[in-house]
Design a protein around this nucleic acid. Structure first.
Lengths: 197, 197, 197, 197
DNA sequence: AATGAATGAGTCTTCATTCAT
DNA sequence: TATGAATGAAGACTCATTCAT
C-alpha cells in the first residue's frame, strides 16, 4: 500500500504533479498512473476519460479554493475588507502550492475548447463570490451605484489572473502576497464614489 | 523588416480563417495550405514550421494593432485620454475582425508553453505602450505617484483581455465598444489620487 | 457428464441473453456476470476462461438440440421421413428460441478460429446424425447408391444453415417452419421435375 | 520502388497475405503496411480506416470473382450448364488462391456485424447471378415451375460455401474442383436416382 | 464459495515535415 | 519556386483475469 488517500484524490494529486513537471501535452495517462502508484486501467475506474481527470482536478482544487475564501471573508463586515481577504487568500493559496499555480495558470489553458468550457462552469462558483461582494458593496453604499457588476468582476478576475500568470511566468521570483494591498487599492479607488465631479 | 511577399501574408490570412473556423487543434497545415491555395510543401518555403506560422500571425497582426493604437493616441494630450483611446481602439479593432478576435482570445491560448512564451514576447510591444501611458500619467501628476506601473499595466491588460474574452465567449452578442467608458472609469478612478483620506 | 450446478446453467443462459442483446464483441465477462447475478470472479469458479463459457454454451444448447432431434426421428421408418423431421425440428427449435438463433447463426461466428474449431467438434454430433440418415437411405435403396455422403451432408447442413441465417438476418419476419417441405423436396428431388409421383 | 502495382491493389494483396498467415485478429495495420512495403500512414491515403481495407478487399476480389464467373457462363446455352460452370469456376478460383480461400471462408467471418453487413452487400452481386440462372432454368422448363428461387439460391450458396469451408478447414487436402459434378448433380437431381438418362 | 478492485498488455490513427520531381 | 505523395512516431482506453478478503 503506497497511500492512504482515496484513489480519486491520489490520482488527481498525481495529475497536478505530472502536469506541472511535464506540461499539459506531455502528461500522458500512463505517467499519471505511474505517479499515482496505480495501474493505467485503475485510472478508468475513477475517471471516465482523460478529460474527466482534468475537469475533476479543477473542480476539486477550485472547490477547496472557494471554500477557503468563503471561510476567510465571512467574518469581514464590509465589501472592501472582503475583497482584500479574497485577493490575499487567492495569492496565498497559489503561493503555497506552486505546482497548482503552474497547472491552473499555464497548463490547463492549453486544453481544448470543450474542456475550457467545462472549466469555466467550475469557475462560475468563484465569480459568484466576487459578484456577491461587489453587489454588497453597492448596497451598503461603499461602492458607486453606477458600478457595472459584470465589468467590475471582469476587472477583478482579469487583474488577479493576469497578476498571478505574470508571477508564475517570472518563475515566482517575487512575493505575490505582498502585492495584495496595491492590487486592492487599484480596485477600490476605482470602485468608490469619485469625490471629484 | 520581415519578408512581406504576397504568399507570406496569404498564408497567414488563411491561418486566421482556418483557426477561427476549425479551432486551434483542427487547424492542420494541410488545411491552411488548401485555404491559402498553395501546396502543403509551399508553406515550408515561407515558414520554418507550424509554430512559425502562428508566431508570425501574431507578430503581423499585433504589429498592425500596435501601429494603429499608437497612431490613435499620439495626438492626445494627457494620459487619461490616451488610455481612453487605447481601450476604444482595442475594442474597435477586434469588433471589426471577429475571426481575429476568436483566434487571439480563444484559439491561440491553446498553444503550448513555448509558443505562448514567444507570443508574450510579441505582446511586450503592446505592454510597453501601456507602460508609457501610465508613466506619463504619473509624471504629469494625473496619476498617483505611488501607482505601481507593473501592477497598473497588469490590471489594464488583464481587464481588457478578460472583457474581450467574455465578449467573444458570449458570441459577441453585445457591443464591446460601448463598454469603453465604463472600463476607462474603472481604471482612472483607481489611478487618480484618492480624495478621501 | 459435465457439472450441472444451477450457476453453471445460470451463467450460460445469461451469456445467451447478453450476446443476443449486445453482440459478440460487446459481451464482456462483467456483463454476463451482472446478467447472471454473480460477481465477475464467480464466473471463473465454473469456467476456465471466457472461451470456455462459449464452448460450454454451444455444447449445452447443441446437446439438447441433438437429443430432441434424435427423439423426433427415432420412430420414422425411412430416411426421407427422418430427414423431413430433422429439418422441421431444426427449424422449430430455432423458431422457438430467437435469442439462441441470433447467437448461433450470427454472433458466435465472429469468434476466432480456435473457438470455431472447438465449436465444430461439438457440431460433429449433429453431422453424425445427418450422416446416419443418408447412409440409411442409401442402404434401403431410397437414395442413389452413388450419393456422396459427405457432400450430401454438406449440402444439407449448408442449406439449412444458410436458410436459417437468411431468416435471422431478415429479422425472422416469415415462418421458417413453413419452408420445411420445400427444403426437403430440394434435397430429395433436386431442381428438375420429379418423374416419380 | 518495390512494386509497380498501384498502391491500392498492393495494400489489398498485402492484407490477404497477412490475414491468411496471421488470422483476422492478428492482422494489425502495421503488419499489412510492412507486407505492402509502405509506411503505416500511407494506408490511410488509400483507405478510410482498417474496416475499409477489408471491405475493399472483399469488393475487389469478389468483383473479379463475379466477372470471371459471368464470363464463363455467358456462352452456355442452358441453366444446368451455367450452374455447372458457376460451381466449377467458383471451386477453381478458390483452389488457385489458397490464401484468398482462407481469408474469405474463415477469417473475414470473424468481423463484426457492421462489416459483415457491408460484405453481404457485396455478396448480393453473386447471389443475383445465381438467381438469374435459376430463373432462366424455370423459364426454359429445365427446372420445376414450383421451384422456390430464394430457397434454391440459399441451397446453392449454402452448399458451395459449406463445401469450400470444409475443404479449407481440412487444409485443402483433396481436390475441390473434382467435386463439381457431384455437387451439380445434387442440385439438379437431388438424392434419388434420376429417372432421366 | 463468493467477491470485485486492481491489473497491464496491446493498436488504430493523425499530421507535421520531407524530398524527388 | 512549387508540388503533394509518402513518412512514422506516439497515446488513450478496454477488458479478461487474478487474488486478498
Amino acid at each position: 500500500m503506497r497511500q492512504k488517500k482515496p484513489k480519486f484524490i491520489q490520482i488527481i494529486d498525481a495529475a497536478v504533479i505530472v502536469i506541472a513537471e511535464n506540461g499539459y501535452h506531455q502528461a500522458q495517462v500512463s505517467k499519471i498512473a505511474k505517479q499515482a502508484g496505480v495501474a493505467d486501467g485503475t485510472i478508468y475506474l475513477y475517471f471516465k476519460n482523460k478529460e474527466d481527470i482534468l475537469v475533476s482536478l479543477f473542480q476539486e482544487k477550485m472547490g477547496v479554493f472557494i471554500e477557503k475564501i468563503e471561510e476567510e471573508i465571512k467574518d469581514k463586515t464590509n465589501a472592501a475588507d472582503k475583497l482584500y481577504s479574497l485577493i490575499e487568500k487567492h495569492f496565498t493559496l497559489l503561493s503555497e502550492d506552486h505546482q497548482l499555480a503552474v497547472v491552473t495558470q499555464l497548463e490547463l489553458r492549453q486544453s481544448n475548447k470543450d474542456l475550457r468550457l467545462r472549466i469555466n462552469e467550475v469557475l462560475k462558483g468563484y465569480l459568484n463570490v466576487v459578484d456577491k461582494i461587489i453587489q454588497e458593496g453597492k448596497e451598503s453604499g461603499e461602492f458607486r451605484q453606477d458600478l457595472d457588476v459584470r465589468l467590475a468582476r471582469q476587472m477583478i478576475f482579469g487583474t488577479i489572473d493576469e497578476t498571478v500568470t505574470t508571477w508564475v511566468m517570472n518563475e515566482q521570483k517575487y512575493s505575490l502576497v505582498n502585492q495584495t494591498k496595491k492590487v486592492h487599492d487599484l480596485f477600490v479607488y476605482g470602485f468608490v464614489t469619485p469625490k471629484t465631479s
